[in-house]
């Protein structure tokens, strides 16, 4: 049974072609570059961390230094896996105007202290008493690490356990962000 006349058929065909063009654009058109975080390229949100020894450390006070911010928890197995690489990298970069900060999240303080005794705690570690820093930095799980340039801009983020090679790569990129972008 023919339910459409010639004009109707032409209209349906035109609509189908338009929809196909739009879908084609959606699938194959210009796309945004996928970043590891929407915060990459933006100024790092400021925070004040309460260290386990009672001291406070504020990100904005570290302007002029390259900062590595590592989010971890004592119950997190990949965090244990990366702990030695972080300690070694800190030893390697501590005299190059680089600061490492460990942010303990979703954890018990006693467990965190035991973890640090076992896996090292040479550089500053602490918690955000407001428990907001992990959300402000868009953390989905641990470990996740941000690399912040001396001008306070987030250069990149790495999700998962770090190795020394990965740390070297990202720190070089963060210490010389201009050469990277050119």
């Amino acid at each position: 049974m023919n339910i459409l006349n010639a004009g109707g058929r032409l209209a349906v065909l035109a609509i189908i072609i338009i929809i196909l063009i739009i879908l084609g654009y959606a699938l194959f058109g210009k796309r945004e570059v996928v970043k590891t975080s929407p915060l990459v390229g933006k100024e790092a949100p400021d925070f004040t961390l309460k260290q386990f020894d009672g001291e406070e450390i504020r990100l904005s006070d570290l302007r002029g230094k390259t900062v590595l911010v590592n989010f971890w928890a004592s119950w997190c197995m990949p965090c244990r896996q990366e702990a030695s690489a972080l300690e070694d990298a800190w030893e390697k970069y501590k005299d190059d105007n680089v600061v490492f900060i460990g942010v303990n999240v979703w954890d018990e303080q006693s467990s965190a202290l035991t973890y640090m005794d076992k896996y090292g705690g040479k550089y500053p570690h602490g918690v955000d008493p407001e428990e907001e820093i992990q959300v402000e930095y868009g953390i989905g799980g641990v470990p996740e690490t941000y690399f912040i340039s001396p001008s306070g801009v987030i250069i990149d983020k790495f999700n998962g356990p770090l190795t020394e090679r990965i740390i070297d790569f990202y720190l070089q990129k963060t210490m010389n962000p201009e050469s990277e972008s050119s």
């Binding site: 975080s37 929407p38 915060l39 959300v135 402000e136 930095y137 868009g138 989905g140």
Partner: peptide, 9 residues
């Protein structure tokens, strides 16, 4: 809502 979009996309 914008605060969360800024952090997580």
């Amino acid at each position: 809502i914008q605060y969360f979009v800024d952090s997580y996309g």
